[in-house]
Design a protein around this nucleic acid. Sequence first.
DNA 1: TAGCATTTGTGCGTATGTATT
DNA 2: CAATACATACGCACAAATGCT
Lengths: 234, 234
Amino acid sequence: MSEEPRTSRIQRQVVQLILDRRLTAGAPLPTEAELMESLGVSRNSVREALKALQALDIVEIRHGYGTYVGQASLTPLVDGLTFRTLARHDDDTGALDEILQVREVLEVGLIRRVAATVTEAELGKLEDVVTRMESAGGTGRSFPELDREFHEVLYASLGNDLVPQLLAAFWTVFRRVSGARGRPDDPSPEITVRRHRDIVDALRARDAEGAQRAMAVHFRGIEARAAQESRGVG
Amino acid sequence: MSEEPRTSRIQRQVVQLILDRRLTAGAPLPTEAELMESLGVSRNSVREALKALQALDIVEIRHGYGTYVGQASLTPLVDGLTFRTLARHDDDTGALDEILQVREVLEVGLIRRVAATVTEAELGKLEDVVTRMESAGGTGRSFPELDREFHEVLYASLGNDLVPQLLAAFWTVFRRVSGARGRPDDPSPEITVRRHRDIVDALRARDAEGAQRAMAVHFRGIEARAAQESRGVG
DNA sequence: TAGCATTTGTGCGTATGTATT
DNA sequence: CAATACATACGCACAAATGCT
């Protein structure tokens, strides 16, 4: 006759409340006291349910202020993948390779669509990022944030909000885990800059095939770095 | 002076404990009492932290039995995407289209690799699934589970565990949300069976291009259905 | 079958910390 | 600076589920 756990039920009820009231991200939720009143449960149960929803970024709890509808970002995916990857104590590099492969398939497949939809303004932004990469590379510094920005701007034109968030999630996991293992610095910034410029050039020429090839080459470089790293070369 | 919230710290500590002790999925964790003892916090704090980790499928809590290391599945992604999609009250179909587009790019890109790595045994399994689709379709019933199984078997040969889990997650969200909106039954099962058989045939012929084309056609069908559905046709 | 020990689930009261007004 | 509203944390007691004797 196993009853549904109280906490699970409360979670569903809170989610349903958000949906029913058509609340959007940032909208205030009932206070804990109001929830325990309306749902007829104790404060502990309410809090445990809210904590679970917070972990999913479905609600956001601000200390001393209130509870609000969350952004429903892909933070849980990042946390989960990071844990998965770090918890695989056997083949250390395997989990990272898997993430990288998914990123590659996505980006190589999407770049074709980008070539058809990208605007002049966006091409300008991309060139701007590459230019900034050049100046950063000239000083010998690496530029992880610029790389991230490049790929984010790249897929903005698709009108698919999920795509850049998903790629950003994979990117973050890759960087985070890679960094936790003591990764080597990005080798030869000039080459990395060149790879990105090749992509922009192909896009400007509306050369979908060329853009795909350039993106694939870009990933070959990343994979080579990852393989090198897994052999303990720093 | 803002201190880090107690619950967040405990979460990190529990995760670190799992990593430090090299615990794998299913391994027992310290009891709540032991955790409050070793971490020097109250039971409520421990429980709230564990609830958050449970939402991420990093731990699994069994009533009256104990707490265990979780599977770190993509369940949080499914929950999050489901919420995201249901919470977009403006353009109802948009969020589903986004998921579908990601699925399409992934599958069309991956099928090429599958064509190179798939074994005879796996081709046999795929044909078996299609055969079962045929019998199910003959009785007029739809076969969502068989469709899921087909795509799962399809990408098993890549040796990338993340891929089938990711695709299954998208598939589940799509089905769940689609169903919550009162979707129409799969139209003409014969056509759906045919589309799947085309994919297997191309794979057996090691025709990567053909497989890609067949997969793309398969998705065109799904998209058409989704569009029809968004117009309220049922 | 019954009973017991262990472990998680739920509820309540209270004190403290924090942000807004 | 004070008051208010709210979340955070703690401790205890009891309920419920599970496994084992």
